[in-house]
Amino acid sequence: MTKTVLITGCSSGFGAAAACLFADNGWNVVATMRTPVAACGDYPNVLVTKLDVQNRDSITSAVSEGIKRFGQIDVVVNNAGYGLFGVFEGTSREKVQEQFDVNVFGMMDVIRETLPHFRANRSGLYINVSSGAGVFGLPMISLYNASKFALEGFSESLSYELASLGIGVKIVEPGGVLETKFGQRSGQEFSSTTTPPDYELFITGAAAVFDELRQARGLATSEDVAKVIFEAATDGTNQLRYVATEDIKPLIDKRRESSEAEYMAFMRERMTPKPA
Rank of each mutant, 00 (worst) to 15 (best):
G106I: 00
D101P: 03
Y82N: 14
E161N: 03
A261P: 05
K227A: 14
P273M: 02
R217E: 15
V75L: 04
S164C: 12
S64K: 05
A261N: 14
E223A: 05
P174L: 04
D52Q: 03
A220E: 14
G137F: 12
K274N: 13
L158A: 14
T49G: 00
L84R: 09
R93P: 13
L84P: 13
V53S: 02
A18D: 04
G168R: 13
I7S: 01
T221V: 13
A206Q: 06
A17L: 11
G124E: 01
S147R: 02
K170D: 13
S157C: 10
V177K: 03
K148L: 09
E246M: 10
C40E: 08
L143M: 13
N121S: 08
I171N: 02
L213T: 05
P275M: 07
D42P: 03
Y126G: 01
E156N: 14
A220H: 02
V87P: 06
V30I: 15
T2R: 13
A150I: 06
G218N: 11
R69K: 08
S258C: 09
C10G: 05
E98S: 12
S157M: 08
G41L: 10
S131V: 06
D42C: 05
Y160A: 11
E152P: 09
N238V: 10
I252R: 12
S130V: 02
K274V: 15
N55D: 08
V104C: 13
R93T: 09
A206H: 04
P196W: 05
V209T: 13
E231H: 12
V135N: 15
G15Y: 01
E179D: 11
L219K: 15
G153F: 08
P250A: 14
F266A: 14
P174N: 12
I252N: 04
R185N: 08
R214K: 11
A133V: 11
G124F: 04
T204L: 14
E257G: 15
I171T: 13
T114V: 13
V96T: 11
C20F: 03
K181S: 12
I67D: 01
R256H: 09
E152H: 10
N238F: 06
A62H: 00
I59L: 01
L47P: 00
Q239T: 09
E189A: 15
D235S: 09
E89K: 15
